[in-house]
Amino acid sequence: MTPFVELDRVTMTYGGPDAGTPAVADASLTIGRGEFVAVVGPSGCGKSSLLKIVSGLMPTDSGTARVDGETVSGPLTMVGMAFQNATLLPWRTTLENVLLPLEVSRAHRRSFRRKRAEHEAAARSLLKTVGLDGYEDHAPHELSGGMQQRASLCRALIHSPDLLLLDEPFAALDAFTREELWGVLQDLWRERQFTVILVTHDLREAVYLADRVYVVSKRPGRIVYERPVPLPRPRTLESTFEQDFVDLVHRLRDHIGEVRAA
């Protein structure tokens, strides 16, 4: 397997190397193309910082981050991002929100007007995949939290990024909506085959979605454990009650417990 994302002994401190405790210390990980990886750990452990390093939004103090064979030295344009907060623009309709990346991205902004019909069709079909057909012209505040998060996923994917970075995207949702969106995300990923790094503190979410789970220690964040998830796909809510699934979650829970106590 050729690595698509590679962190090699990366250390990063907000504000530069001399600014105190690093957010990430000596972290190494390797992610294959098309792989779905989850990063779990206690809150404040620097999980989100890993995403900032991979996306090139934060420079490292030492060590290197490589994506698609190239060393990361500035913001990468091949990534899509979604967060706990959907951050949709309230004055734009759902469809217009999904189109935003195409309007401003370096690769598409010149041809946006010319190809608008084409882009709109793509956005509509993407919205349909996540079950938002019929809501294209609604304002974000007319959507429920789960629907906003679906739209946010569409915005992250509209420019067909190779790498999707998710920072606790479902953390603010109720349990039922969250589990529903696991299915939505899994379907999108199986259909479009992008690489995913999902940061979460929900262990069931990590096991449901990921091919592999990394456990990060308390700050400064170190990667202390790595665990493949060999469960068959597609996974369903039924799978979450099976013994293999439950065992895996337990194993991870034990590791998190150790990390928190340490």
């Binding site: 900032k52 090139g56 344009t77 991002m81 951050t87 401003v104």
Partner: peptide, 21 residues
């Protein structure tokens, strides 16, 4: 929002686009 700024930066959005849109 900082998250939105991250999204826009990673898209390579120009300052003027961020300002206007």
């Amino acid at each position: 929002e900082p998250e939105l700024r991250d999204v826009l930066r990673s898209l390579g959005a120009r300052k003027v686009d961020i300002l206007l849109k």
